[in-house]
Design a binder for these strands. Structure first.
Lengths: 139, 139
DNA sequence: TCAATAGTTCACAAGTGCGGAACTAGTGAA
DNA sequence: TTCACTAGTTCCGCACTTGTGAACTATTGA
């Protein structure tokens, strides 16, 4: 028995569920978080190349890396992404082809709805910005 | 000031978000629970008539009514259903037309994925039942 | 007015999630 | 080999969320 084995935190190998193990519930739960949909949408667009920190900037707010690590874990264990070490950093890819085969249309519908919501949010934000600028000038 | 007003629990009117207030996240969160998708799928199929207890039987396990009430509340406040009192019981209807207009294809994709998963589950359950029957006969 | 039925609210236990600190793991330079 | 650096994970305390029984509201029909 290794004397370190009790206290030592060994990094477990990353878990990826097989396609049969993936459930609708876990997919919906994973994508029910604004940060995680944003991560997933980003991954989906620029497929095949994203590590955690490159998304840190893109997601807007500064998210602690422990939190980000958790988010990636949730996405991974829901079967949405595949992560593998590439040297010092992580390489994340979507498993959208597999999921599309199992649950046709699901991911595209969610991502599309998310996009629509973002566009709408951007539009209303721009409108309220214009409005507050106008009142500022007015004063 | 009503003397009862402090201790008395007044039943608040049921909250229904307007269509603009409905978010993808809240929809996904609401449907990420196996009981709630089952409720929603049941409502969707036999549209325009379901009260809480009629779903109690359909959902399989015996769910406490306080829990069921919470589930309906989550669905309602996510904008997925509309509830109104009809005498002593509750009348729940889906708001699928509204949501379809706002997020096209989302609900159908989720419900379809859920159906696929249920069918698959039923099939594997039947297969394992057959198998255990065969071994029981064998002994 | 009272009993029955349907559903809600409350309180609390149990579970889940966030984020800082401490860690592992890989790399490249001295 | 050793050291510093970077990328990400694990642990743990604390806050928030969820499930459930008990007590309640609301409505109906006798």
């Amino acid at each position: 028995m290794d004397s370190r084995s009790r206290t030592m935190k060994v990094m477990r190998p990353l878990l990826h569920p097989s396609i049969e193990e993936i459930t609708v519930e876990s997919i919906l739960h994973a994508l029910a978080d604004p940060v995680r949909v944003a991560i997933y949408a980003g991954l989906f667009q620029s497929d095949c190349a994203k590590n955690c920190t490159s998304l840190l900037g893109g997601c807007g707010a500064s998210i602690p890396k422990s939190t980000l690590s958790q988010h990636f874990k949730v996405l991974r264990e829901a079967g949405l992404i595949r992560s593998e070490r590439r040297g010092v950093e992580m390489h994340n890819t979507t498993r959208c082809a597999e999921i599309e085969a199992r649950f046709p249309g699901l991911l595209l519908a969610i991502l599309n709805a998310h996009k629509l919501q973002q566009e709408r949010k951007a539009k209303t934000a721009a409108a309220s910005r214009r409005k507050s600028n106008a009142t500022a000038k007015g004063q």
